[in-house]
């Protein structure tokens, strides 16, 4: 047992119970169904903008792209234009692959002592973090986009298409959306890495576990509502549409489980800008990826260089010409 994950786990439990009992026991539907979601969206947006503006204001004086291939060199040496780009087009492709395919994670390696008698430290390619991360992020994206059906009426065709593709296996009623279980399983896999792998566990903090437990809690409550306990979906859509159109409406007969789900989502939104989850915005601004490696072709001047009074050689010679001639030193101008 490790308190770095016990505290976040307990926190997520308590947060859920807070909303559940708040609604079931105290009848605080307006607080958990209207007030907190609005505050959470405001906190998310304001926090996100402040964070990104802060990053935009910080100086990036040096070209520091991580070079993962042959840089542009002599014409007969083949350059790796994506992994060591020297043009903005190359950088664009590199960023596209980084954002949509997590290319740098694909290169993930692990260090371990091998099992031969030599017992040497060796590095091997470890692809499962990449697979898990890809499954997790895309499942979450699909789940998020699917939920837009609660905020639009009539629901646009593109969202219906996503629902159709997500539910294409036609298992059970209500039909299984593949993204739900994939999201839960991928999040559980990412969690198990942090708990079971000693090397990852060693560097994992409460701030790493909390978002994971939060997302697992959101996935469990969502899946429970859709497939197990069931809820009055029209009532819930009346609530969410009320939020989207600024005419809040509290439906009857929608229970604490829904408000627990909504509260955990609100917490995720409000917590987002001050957490590691800001890598969503940060990935676009990582200077090791979004800069072209053209330091040899182009001169980059430090943007905060200020005017230093300089003393050129001409001035120096003017100053000491007589003495230099006297000492027999060579001078550019004799007179």
């Amino acid at each position: 047992m490790n308190q770095r994950y016990l505290i976040p786990l307990t926190a997520v439990f308590l947060l859920f119970l807070l909303a559940y009992t708040g609604v079931e026991g105290l009848g605080l539907q307006v607080v958990f169904g209207v007030l907190i979601p609005y505050l959470a969206v405001a906190a998310f947006l304001i926090g996100f903008v402040i964070k990104v503006k802060g990053w935009a204001a910080s100086a990036v004086p040096f070209r520091i792209p991580t070079t993962c291939g042959q840089q542009k060199s002599l014409p007969w040496i083949k350059q790796n234009t994506i992994d060591n780009p020297n043009t903005s087009a190359g950088v664009f492709v590199r960023m596209l692959l980084e954002i949509f395919a997590f290319r740098s994670l694909f290169r993930n390696t692990k260090a371990a002592f091998n099992r031969h008698a030599s017992n040497r430290l060796s590095y091997s390619w470890e692809i499962f973090l990449w697979v898990g991360a890809l499954a997790f992020h895309y499942a979450f994206l699909v789940v998020l986009l699917r939920h837009l059906r609660f905020f639009t009426a009539p629901v646009p065709g593109c969202i219906q298409l996503i629902e159709y593709l997500d539910g294409i296996v036609q298992v059970g009623l209500p039909g299984l959306f593949i993204s739900g279980p994939v999201l839960l399983l991928a999040a559980l896999f990412l969690l198990s890495r942090r708990v079971l792998d000693a090397k990852v566990s060693y560097i994992s903090q409460a701030a790493d576990y909390f978002p994971l437990f939060l997302i697992i809690g959101i996935a469990i409550t969502g899946i429970a509502m859709r497939y197990f306990t069931k809820v009055d979906i029209i009532g819930i859509k009346e609530l969410t549409m009320g939020l989207a159109t600024f005419h809040p409406h509290i439906p009857e007969e929608v229970g604490g489980l829904f408000y627990g789900h909504l509260f955990l989502v609100s917490i995720l939104f409000a917590y987002f800008p001050m957490s590691k989850l800001m890598h969503m915005g940060g990935i676009f601004l990582s200077p090791t990826r979004n800069m072209a490696n053209n330091t040899r072709a182009k001169r980059h001047v430090n943007p905060w260089n200020y005017d230093v009074p300089i003393h050129t050689y001409e001035q120096y010679e003017d100053h000491f010409r007589d003495k230099m001639i006297e000492a027999g030193l060579p001078v550019d101008k004799k007179e």
Binding site: F44, L45, L148, T152, A153, K237, A244, T245
Partner: peptide, 16 residues
Amino acid sequence: VLSPFWFNLITTTQAA
């Protein structure tokens, strides 16, 4: 992020 809000402003919203 604000799309649910402005989308319902510019389109006619169907009542429950």
